[in-house]
Computed example of a mutant assay.
Amino acid sequence: MSIGNAAEEDRPTVGQTLQQARVDARLTVDEVSTSTRVRVPIVRAIEEDDFSRCGGDVYARGHVRTLAREVGLDSDELVARYDAEHGGRPEPTAAPAALFEAERIRPEHRRPNWTAAMVAAIVAVVGFVGFTLVDGSGDSEPSAAEETPSAHPSQSREPSESAAPTTSVPADPKPSDSAIAAAPADKVTVRMTAEQSVWISAEDHNGRLIHEGVLQKGKSKTFTDDKRLNLVLGNAGGVKLYVNGKEVKDVGEDGQVQRLSYTRGDPEAG
């Protein structure tokens, strides 16, 4: 279905376009919500051009794209119209300066401490002279070892060299990123850690909403259920996901709305 042929002043809004396409497709709001997993209140709000419940422009674009596909519209064209109606697509923000602090501030190579080296050399010389004077005050006759050199000097040194072998104590291993403490085998456990701010929604196996909102960057959230957990990620590329103690790779891309469902046996490979 094409949505770009109408004159600019006569063209309906994004919400009106989605609503009309849904009606033309003979679909109810409940049916669209069930198939897309976008909650009914959010579907209704979007059709009324109220995007405040989406949690931000990134999530609003994801919902618009998903609903457009469901009702047979060109999702790219409708998202472009959303950007035009809401001030354009925002420029990507620069990464915080703290992220590059380690690269920008490099410690300078320290110059040799000649004063300390000279003090150490003087101490060594004084110690050697003192040892020589004390050793020379005893019997001046050469010892048996001095009169008769050992035929195998290398063998005489081996016991002293091997008498006290040095052993390195391994450092305590750091905990693995994928280690999730106490993931019970009789439940499904999902843990999310946000690397970017991520809008998430979680439902139990009965379809009951147990959480909805934005998980701020650096924060984590854990959900459990006896049978199954249904998830919606508004920015799939910005979250680390662990299911039943195993990390799930390639959850999605930045800005992508991802709908996932996990049971006690998932994932087969973490």
Score class of each variant (00 low, 15 high):
residue 161 E to V: 15
residue 80 A to K: 08
residue 246 K to Y: 09
residue 213 G to Q: 04
residue 9 E to M: 15
residue 5 N to C: 09
residue 73 L to K: 03
residue 24 D to K: 09
residue 113 N to M: 06
residue 75 S to L: 06
residue 87 G to K: 00
residue 187 K to R: 12
residue 244 N to A: 08
residue 67 L to S: 06
residue 17 T to I: 08
residue 159 P to I: 00
residue 55 G to I: 04
residue 122 I to P: 04
residue 55 G to M: 04
residue 50 D to Q: 06
residue 38 V to R: 03
residue 144 A to K: 14
residue 80 A to N: 12
residue 58 V to G: 04
residue 77 E to Y: 00
residue 43 V to H: 03
residue 234 G to C: 07
residue 32 V to I: 10
residue 148 T to S: 09
residue 170 P to F: 06
residue 251 V to C: 00
residue 112 P to D: 01
residue 84 A to F: 05
residue 210 I to T: 08
residue 65 R to W: 13
residue 252 G to L: 00
residue 4 G to K: 10
residue 149 P to E: 02
residue 63 H to M: 11
residue 67 L to W: 03
residue 94 A to Q: 11
residue 218 G to A: 01
residue 259 R to H: 13
residue 150 S to A: 07
residue 34 T to A: 14
residue 247 E to P: 07
residue 180 I to P: 11
residue 194 A to T: 02
residue 162 S to F: 12
residue 264 R to I: 07
residue 51 F to N: 09
residue 111 R to C: 05
residue 253 E to C: 03
residue 106 R to W: 03
residue 124 A to I: 07
residue 126 V to E: 01
residue 131 F to A: 08
residue 45 A to K: 03
residue 179 A to G: 10
residue 135 D to N: 12
residue 180 I to T: 15
residue 108 E to V: 06
residue 124 A to P: 01
residue 192 M to T: 04
residue 16 Q to Y: 07
residue 129 V to I: 15
residue 1 M to P: 08
residue 131 F to M: 05
residue 78 L to G: 03
residue 117 A to N: 05
residue 100 F to G: 10
residue 142 P to T: 06
residue 6 A to Q: 12
residue 21 A to N: 06
residue 220 S to I: 07
residue 157 R to W: 11
residue 183 A to R: 06
residue 178 S to Q: 15
residue 154 S to M: 14
residue 32 V to R: 01
residue 51 F to M: 09
residue 270 G to A: 13
residue 206 N to I: 06
residue 26 R to Y: 14
residue 105 I to A: 11
residue 61 R to E: 11
residue 105 I to M: 10
residue 191 R to E: 13
residue 81 R to K: 09
residue 46 I to G: 00
residue 164 A to E: 13
residue 210 I to H: 01
residue 17 T to Q: 07
residue 131 F to V: 09
residue 153 P to L: 02
residue 258 Q to N: 12
residue 211 H to S: 11
residue 148 T to P: 01
residue 57 D to W: 05
residue 202 A to M: 08
residue 14 V to C: 03
residue 182 A to R: 07
residue 103 E to S: 14
residue 86 H to E: 06
residue 170 P to V: 02
residue 245 G to P: 05
residue 36 T to W: 02
residue 34 T to K: 14
residue 150 S to L: 05
residue 268 E to H: 12
residue 123 V to H: 03
residue 156 S to D: 15
residue 211 H to P: 05
residue 185 A to Q: 10
residue 91 E to A: 14
residue 87 G to R: 00
residue 72 G to Y: 01
residue 226 D to M: 08
residue 51 F to E: 11
residue 106 R to Q: 10
residue 52 S to F: 06
residue 76 D to T: 10
residue 215 L to Q: 02
residue 74 D to C: 07
residue 198 V to G: 03
residue 99 L to G: 10
